[in-house]
Nucleic acid binder design. Sequence first.
DNA 1: ATTTTGTCTTTGACGAGTCAAAGACGGTAT
DNA 2: ATACCGTCTTTGACTCGTCAAAGACAAAAT
Lengths: 219, 219
Amino acid sequence: MPTSTVENYLKAILVRSADAGAVVSTGSIAEALGVTPGTITTMVKSLAAQGLVEHQPREGVRLTPAGRAHALGVLRKHRLIETFLVQVLKMDWKEVHEEAEALEHAISDRVLLRIDAILGHPVSDPHGDPIPSPKRPLFDRGKGVTLATCEPQRPFRVQRILDQSGPFLEFIQRTGLKPGARVRVRERDRASGVVRCELGDAEAALGLPEAAKIEVGAA
Amino acid sequence: MPTSTVENYLKAILVRSADAGAVVSTGSIAEALGVTPGTITTMVKSLAAQGLVEHQPREGVRLTPAGRAHALGVLRKHRLIETFLVQVLKMDWKEVHEEAEALEHAISDRVLLRIDAILGHPVSDPHGDPIPSPKRPLFDRGKGVTLATCEPQRPFRVQRILDQSGPFLEFIQRTGLKPGARVRVRERDRASGVVRCELGDAEAALGLPEAAKIEVGAA
DNA sequence: ATTTTGTCTTTGACGAGTCAAAGACGGTAT
DNA sequence: ATACCGTCTTTGACTCGTCAAAGACAAAAT
């Protein structure tokens, strides 16, 4: 059974592969895991020896089907745990990511089954990220309509928050731009880089890069 | 922050110290953790360097106040988790010990607080083991009345199961001798080593060593 | 008083995961 | 074409937790 370090590598590679067969640079993995480039090279060779990735030196890394399957399992655990922490344990939205980071390597499949059942087999976590499952392989590549690109004046519904960092989640919480909220872009000014939008009777302003982190769908 | 290995050593030493200041032999720790004696010696020296234990070579090991405090914290986590798994996640009584063994090193204090609150601050886990807390330091050394020593014919109530092993818990579950059950020793035959007892209108027979693992109290 | 026995400690080694620093490579600029 | 630059790989070293095997000790047996 893979160690928790191996699981973290696989997960990092998975979330960085746009599509199923995409190649990921070792450098981007190094940055994601906060580890020196040399460490990645070493580790990637070991992952390749275990048949979890394929490695083209100086090219990049690609998950094998086995590696992808394992990574999806870890991602599923992570997102189910986040959902559980918020819905059952009533924990704060912005705390659960780091908690799940530790728990995803300690929770057995047996416990996970119970959690999934108690939550009623949810299909997305509190940030709106999809929860992969054997039958729902991770559609992910959505059309990607965000507050930076959606049609102005039309009402939408927040679907997903694409940035898990503390300060950003704090902002989301403060403004109420959480998944499920109804929102309407009132004005988008390319020159100043500001998006002003309306939630119920409140208003919020955010920069274009930040707006691009909020995915929306039909209201 | 101590690694999970360190936590396991401290916990093993704690549950083997009869009283607060008791000395534990390195051999018994080795057996408990399934590790060679040499490993214990090495590790104990490192624990001593961290101020968590005192080590008299060829004598034994004693927890320092800091070591004991940490060990109690781990034990508290373990038992709260077991309780949570049974009561909230509706898991099987005899599975939860090993699950908790992994989870106790991954769950943060924040999550533990939520679990404790949801359970209503329980004072004992599903096996009847006391849950230590800052205000309830672990009275443990009970009088130790068990089915092997209690007065025959008098009704008692099962308080605690002193053996966490799979087959024994299976037996307990089968006969219904779980904490809370009312029980009466019908006959105790020293010669044959058999204790026959009555639960409601059912009956159960068990050996003397096994009877000594079931602690009882006033009905 | 010596030998035996059982427990504890020391020693040398290993795998996992990591870093720092030096080296190799490939693409861009000149 | 040559030099330069940023990225990737190699190398040597370190920590943690572990083992096997050899050595030291203390208490019991003779």
